[in-house]
């Protein structure tokens, strides 16, 4: 039985907590959040104790695993502190960190203490994305030439509007389509160069927004050309889709089907949309969030290496921040 302590009590922390509670090999023993009432609510829902500080939780809850679900810029603080606590493992929500340096710092701290660190790139556990990679690897579409993804919906509301502060969240490029960037790198290999346009990269520091949008073009080292659409500006509901075109076929999910509706207007109604972040669900027997966390716990139990490494988390951030930089400078950014 893995004793799990969770830092953060926002939307994704709730999802992770419910997955641990449902897992016969885990239980949530501690919750810490800067907002005591949020910590208490989530602790209560999962039979755990709410703590007034992260240090106290590490000490008193005697966790085996710490799961870090705080806003992105503080991942590094919690992960590095947890790395020195002699844990069996650490989970960090995507994106791994706000900078490549932060990601490297987390990876180094965990390597130094021998603590396995798992970056929660849950998309790899969404069945359609996992199956697409299997099909690509099996040559279903031949040699891949282009890949397009789209992701997003309305603007997510959360604590301190932190998603709306690009300095904190990195906007849609870092926070939202890190999912796709990691899946793309996993499926199509390393990226050679990036060109992007977007709203939040062009804003002055300390800006705050209520929507964001970006279009990213990727050239992979394999020659594949990719396009990623990222939106927090679509009131028409959360949408995810992709298509992969190769020299022997085309594989798609929610991308080209004829709806018989050639024109759709999705308009903002009222000033404020609903609360919290839209969390896409895929009703299959196994919840992908459950699957990713169960995978990590299973690796910890068996000593196997998790399928997502700290390097994977770091590289996804590197690609996203290259896109952010390109959108700032107007020039393509070549990756190392």
């Amino acid at each position: 039985m893995f004793r799990v302590a969770i830092a953060g009590a926002g939307g994704m922390a709730h999802m992770h907590a419910s997955c641990y509670t449902a897992n016969p090999n885990a239980c949530v023993v501690g919750v810490y959040d800067k907002r005591p009432e949020a910590a208490a609510e989530m602790a209560g829902a999962n039979g755990a104790t709410a703590y007034a500080s992260f240090a106290e939780m590490l000490e008193a809850a005697r966790p085996d695993v710490v799961d870090v679900c705080v806003p992105t810029p503080w991942h590094v603080d919690y992960v590095v502190a947890a790395a020195e606590a002699g844990l069996k493992g650490i989970v960090v929500e995507k994106p791994m960190g706000r900078s490549v340096a932060d990601c490297e710092k987390m990876a180094d701290a965990c390597a130094a203490s021998g603590t396995p660190l798992f970056v929660a790139h849950v998309l790899r556990f969404f069945p359609e994305f996992a199956e697409a990679k299997r099909q690509v690897d099996a040559g279903a579409v031949g040699n891949v030439v282009t890949v397009r993804t789209r992701r997003g919906g309305s603007f997510p509301r959360a604590w301190e509007n932190w998603y709306g502060k690009p300095d904190w969240s990195g906007g849609v490029i870092l926070d939202l389509v890190i999912h796709d960037l990691d899946w793309l790198r996993w499926t199509f290999g390393d990226v050679e160069r990036v060109f992007a346009k977007g709203i939040s990269p062009k804003l002055p520091p300390a800006s705050e927004v209520n929507s964001d949008y970006a279009l990213i073009t990727l050239k992979f080292k394999s020659g594949v050309i990719g396009h990623v659409e990222a939106t927090w500006a679509d009131p028409g509901g959360f949408k995810v889709g992709f298509e992969i075109a190769g020299d022997a076929g085309l594989l798609e999910s929610n991308f080209n089907q004829p709806a018989g509706v050639p024109f759709v207007a999705a308009l903002q109604r009222g000033a404020e949309a609903g609360a919290a972040v839209a969390v896409p669900e895929s009703p299959t027997a196994v919840n992908p969030y459950y699957a990713e966390l169960d995978h990590f716990l299973t690796c910890l139990a068996t000593g196997a290496t998790p399928s997502i490494t700290p390097k994977d988390g770091c590289e996804a951030v590197r690609i996203a921040l290259a896109a952010f930089e390109s959108a700032q400078t107007g020039e393509p950014v070549v990756l190392p």
């Binding site: 075109a245 022997a248 085309l250 207007a265 999705a266 308009l267």
Partner: peptide, 26 residues
């Protein structure tokens, strides 16, 4: 990029993103 087996010749699509909403054309 549409394969021979694609069910139609191709497409023309637009997604127009504005400050107050999104219009999509397929």
């Amino acid at each position: 990029s549409r394969p021979k087996s694609f069910p139609t010749w191709g497409d023309v699509t637009l997604s127009v993103v504005g400050e107050k909403g999104v219009l999509t054309l397929d």
